[in-house]
Design a protein around this nucleic acid. Structure first.
Lengths: 180, 180
DNA sequence: ATTAATATAGGACAAGATGTTCGGTATTGA
DNA sequence: TCAATACCGAACATCTTGTCCTATATTAAT
């Protein structure tokens, strides 16, 4: 990838994240992002077709960071054999905390929906085999509830309660659920 | 309220709900709603300032129906004295099921975020005093998790699993959580 | 039945956002 | 050094928005 492309892409991401802290996603125009990033109009459209595509790309960038080590470790069977499920959860929280700057604005309003949907997709893979079914509770309901609960935990944590440690949040989460 | 106003308001709500089933909220224009409802442009703006206001109004209409009996009963201390918390939850699910037609589309995409935020506000009042805190879990975290979990339960239920009864869903939900 | 009030229809309008195109400039990587 | 290409910036047609206006139709009250 060309150095100029990397620079522009980064400018757009930074501008977008910064804007999300003061403006809602839906009220934000492409022009706003262009002005904030201080780039040409056609340059933006050379990188992203729409505002939605930009959001998707940013989410993917974040999750690549958060889950890359996670998935790598899984491939090498580190976590499966040497670490507990709780440790994996804590591990994910650490990575999310590192990206807090970019993530905080993503929880706001309408794009929180999209961000959380992406997050849940990744989480499903992590949680799936660790669901403990009680009675006749449908498995996919339990999985959905666990994943949503954890996603909500992340949101609650990074939006105003980041004084807690990842270990504490893991404890709190496991303490409240009955299916993990 | 004038009969014409009621008719137009109803036409708009119906058109909006119907459109949400085939079109995403963000890609839907006011013009789409006007065409679907077959009303004049200025008529729409006489009722709602923006598309967002329309969404809010529809949410309020639904929750007025779902929680009106709920709140009324609470005032008369029926539920507090003669019914269990589980029964209240089941009761709410019954009312939500009645409004399924209007609600189903609301879960889609970006407006799901707004609908669920409203729903959670109401649920907070219902759940608040029934949270059982374990260890040092923060109360507002536990409340947030319980409310989000129930909201997610509603979504899961009405989006593709409406074959289950309200009683079953209540059982499933209570079975999975550790704080109620 | 009559009437005054008002909700709606429908056309027109400016302002703003969108997405595309183009030619010129500057940076890059080889 | 040089060919490739990313950026700039201006212009453009198109669409959406929200407002304003007048004429018409419906309503609720007398």
């Amino acid at each position: 990838m060309d150095r100029r492309q990397r620079r522009t892409r980064s400018l757009i991401f930074t501008a977008f994240s910064a804007l999300l802290e003061r403006k809602s996603y839906s009220s934000m125009t492409v022009q706003d992002i262009i002005d904030e990033a201080d780039i040409g109009r056609s340059t933006f459209y050379a990188h992203f077709e729409t505002k939605d595509e930009l959001l998707k790309a940013l989410c993917n960038d974040i999750f690549d960071h958060v889950f890359s080590a996670e998935i790598m470790s899984e491939e090498h069977h580190d976590f499966s054999h040497h670490s507990s499920f709780r440790d994996r959860i804590t591990h994910i929280l650490y990575h999310l905390q590192e990206k807090q700057q970019s993530i905080r604005g993503l929880f706001n309003g309408e794009c929180g929906e999209i961000f959380l949907r992406y997050l849940k997709e990744y989480l499903c893979q992590v949680f799936d085999e660790h669901i403990t079914i009680k009675d006749d509770v449908p498995h996919d309901y339990a999985l959905d509830l666990a994943v949503s609960g954890f996603a909500e935990t992340v949101r609650w944590w990074l939006k105003g309660h980041s004084e807690y440690t990842p270990e504490q949040m893991t404890d709190y989460f496991f303490c409240c659920t009955n299916i993990l």
